[in-house]
Amino acid sequence: MTSFDYAASPDPIRNDLADAHRRQWQRIANTGTWLTGAQRVAVAEETRWARDCALCRERKRALSPFAVDGEHDHAGVLPAPMVDEIHRVTTDAARLSQKWFESLLEQGLSADAYVEALGVAVCTISIDGFHHAMGLPVEPLPEPNDGEPTRERPDDLVEGEAWVPMRAPKGLSAELGLPAGQAPYVIRALSLVPAEVHAWDDLSAAQYLNKQQMMRFEKVRAIDRSQIELVAGRVSALNECFY
């Protein structure tokens, strides 16, 4: 069976979108840098559990999400700190805190695994979000592939600019074809696990704009740049995202 077969959609879906979604699903199934293929697919699955999690609903209603204790409804595959990461990122990301992030590290989650899980989770949320907006059922998750994580850490990491270590702008900007030394924080955010940045880049090019199109303002989609940024800004505001 072909994944992401959009033939049944009442609105014809661009081939480049379907292709990008297939590549992301394949990538999620593959062994990662710090997580196995099975763990990565489990991360994707956990984002779907989070949407129906009773604890997450209760925390979302609470004045402070850290005032409510309990256990998440979860798939039972991943360690508790990673389950908490994925559930909170999925359901209440605007109220995350550095103190909470550090508490996950104290519970044994590495910053590297945190960033890789974040990359896989947001990719799944994004593609599921597209399906939801289009009125399409979510795609079944892929079968994981075997293999051992590479556990390779970049050697140009900078600490202290964000909660997570990030690569310095110079090397990353060269790798991504950005102006020399100019990699914005939102691109560097996942760079502790470089494969997740490249995945971000690939999916953004199909769902939003590629980096070159971002720097220009010509119309390249059925909606022009003002319309694109209106939708982007509105979604960010509804998520109470300051950025």
Binding site: A94, I127, D128, A133, Q207, V235
Partner: peptide, 22 residues
């Protein structure tokens, strides 16, 4: 379709920003 793509994309971007503390 293009608007749905942007919606999906920014459901991701806000979580990258908020989840990494940039």
């Amino acid at each position: 379709v293009d608007a749905a793509g942007v919606i999906g994309n920014f459901q991701r971007m806000v979580r990258i920003a908020d989840g990494s503390g940039i």
